[in-house]
Amino acid sequence: MISLSHVTKLYGSVIGVNDVTVELGAGAYGLLGPNGAGKTTFLGLVTGQLRPSIGQVRVFGERPFFNARVLRRIGYCPASDLTERSATPREWVRYLVQLSGFTPAAARRLAEETLEQVGLGEAAGRPLSTLSKGMRQRAKLAGAMAHDPDLLVLDEPFDGLDPVARHELVTLVRTWARSRSLLIASHLLHEVEALQAGLAVILGGRLVASGSVHEISQLVDTLPSEVRVVSTAPRRLAELACRCPEAEGVRFVGADAFIVDTRAPRLLADWVVEAANAEGILIRELVPGDRSLEGIFGRLVQVHRGVAP
């Protein structure tokens, strides 16, 4: 469905994305990365707003830039706020559907149906300027979905939403993506996790990891991590920790704390606890590397930036 082959996008001397090669088949995918990582540029390339400086982008087997056949099959909800002042959501969505080539009558019908779906039925006649950001987000989403695209591309679609609205829209997008493809960019892992989507992690314009949540967890298991221990007998405990086959190095960080470098923080933590029990050493604090998705993401960021070993 989406194929990027050694794609680099430059804005003058600034790199948007850097030598990205990826193949995404039909399905749901999350594009993860911190702000400024290149997510929007990636989506801009996929949705035909931008041409690659180097490399080739294919969507549905064709170049998306200036290609009506491809664009007709894509729905895009950008991250930027909709500051259109005078139009109502009904007028706005109808307008976008007409721009997709539908007759005014068909556009009216599709707009009404989609606005109901996103929960904007009652507010559809109010000017966009009077709506909350959450409601404008829904209007944007409706505009992206109303022409029934095969691929829905969402850039930070849940920003500015309260938890209830977020849950509603996550459910809506998840339901929608059951029968069609979805590419969603976010810097919040739990959003993508909730959509049960495959992951692609982008950092500094580079695609640093891709796969399912499980695959990325496995990848991170091979990355260096650390366990921090605070104890009443740090030197003795550090000596015991060094005997663990998973330990790769130890360094002291203060009078009563040390850090063990490892690629298996949980195993090492178990080893340290057992060793401390056997020797009667009191552990005041033991913090293994964060293995939650947030932790994984943070770890990948650190590795990419060269902060982590």
Partner: peptide, 22 residues
């Protein structure tokens, strides 16, 4: 893993379809 193809999170054809649309 750069450049690899992530598998779809779930096969679309194995999931219940949306309610019938016009």
């Amino acid at each position: 893993m750069t450049g690899q193809t992530p598998p779809p999170a779930r096969a679309p054809d194995q999931l219940p379809s949306l309610p019938a649309l016009a």
